[in-house]
Amino acid sequence: MLHRYMLGILLTLLFGFGSAFAHEQHQQSKTINSKLLNEQRTVTIQLPNSYFNNTAQKYPVIYRLDGKESIAIESAMLNKLHQSGSAPEVIIVAIENTDRTRDLTPTVNYDPRGPVGAGGGGDKFLDFIEKELIPYVNQSYRVHDFKVFSGASIGGLLVLHSFHSRPHLFQGHIAYSPAVWWADETTKKKVKQFVSSVSSYKNYLYMNIGSEHLSMRRVYDDLSTHVQKNKPSDLQLVLNTFNDVPHAMTSAAGVFNAYHTLFLPLVMPNEALENGVSSIKEYYQNVAFQRGEQIQPQEWVLRELAYGLVDKQAFKTAIEIFKYNIALYPKNAEAYNGLAYGYEQAKQFSNALEQVNIALQLANEGDSGLDVYKNRQARLKSLLQL
């Protein structure tokens, strides 16, 4: 059902191009004289909309292979995710090609499915990225240390090569339809060996595949199955299969899932609440790491998480979260009323009355919750026969 994906892609482009053209001043072309590659390299840098207004803000960086033609759809999707609170604003560094096959392949190819005798400059190109490009970006722009490496086809191949050979370099890896058949499947073999040899790897890996030739699909399926079965702890792995999407369109088909699952939303989802308050603290520490700034959950978010536990009659954990909410928002009437609700549902009526009384002391005339607090107080007094 290719048309569904194409519709989504067209809608993405429609809402994205307007944003891109409206902020042309945010796109810059820079030339770096690379001593490692012995040539000049051009990068196109897409700055976020707030870059020139919010001068204290630092941003994560996405290093995207294959140049600025990749920026439009990725920038549009990331902007949309940011507007919904599902991703931070980011800087995109798109690396323009000179000799694509040379730079994006880690080994020389002898497979007749590709250009025989070509390639093999991947590690030298990664040296350029690590030792020249990243330091240049760090020095020239306001960034923090959350970096993502993204590429398609042989670009995805290089992403996977970096994933196993330089695990320190990027915190996220996105490989759209990676050409893992290249050069006797060398990169596939090394990735399999790597994931089998490490017990923990705090990172993110997204891979997808489209309607590839059966022999190429076999190689990818072997890799994806192995990584799934031998995934190190702390590695977040996301895999997509698009059986009716051609190879050249897999980046467009996968861009939403890639970034939607990479970045944590500001509103913690219920399914992430595995261990009460400690999981909330861990979640927002990870959000802060991705965004490069301290992030505190909003009062209503904590209350909603606790409400969900009350519905499941997990009263002890719910009450702990309500109390944590009050610790963060000690002057917020709704936080106290939330705890009162938790106690009431747990039939701890005296405790519930104590908390709703505090809510009423903090509330102002005209507050939307005032009648709720008064009704709860009256109900509790009746239950306690006061």
Rank of each mutant, 00 (worst) to 15 (best):
L305M: 11
T241H: 08
L133N: 10
F322D: 14
S29G: 02
Q377G: 00
Y373F: 15
K229G: 00
Q193E: 15
R64E: 13
F52V: 02
L11M: 11
Y136F: 15
S34N: 09
Q294P: 01
N97K: 07
Y201P: 00
R102D: 09
H26G: 14
D123H: 11
Q236L: 08
H144S: 05
G114I: 00
T42V: 12
I134K: 11
N364I: 11
Q228L: 12
M77S: 06
K188D: 05
E334T: 12
Q25H: 13
N79Y: 10
L7T: 12
T241A: 05
S140Y: 05
V198D: 08
V287E: 02
G16E: 06
M249D: 07
L339T: 03
Y283Q: 02
D222G: 12
E185S: 13
A335T: 10
H26L: 14
V61R: 03
K316N: 14
N337D: 15
Y63R: 08
Y373G: 01
L169Q: 12
N243T: 11
G16K: 07
I129R: 03
N203V: 01
Q377I: 01
D103E: 12
I45T: 10
E39W: 01
F163H: 03
I71P: 06
F349K: 06
V245Y: 04
P106Q: 09
V116A: 01
S19R: 15
A22D: 11
F125D: 01
Y204Q: 10
V198P: 03
D123Y: 11
H260C: 03
L362F: 02
K35E: 12
Y284A: 01
D123E: 15
V61K: 04
S279I: 02
G114S: 13
E282Q: 14
E212F: 04
T101R: 10
S382V: 03
N240C: 13
N364E: 14
I95M: 13
A20P: 00
R4I: 14
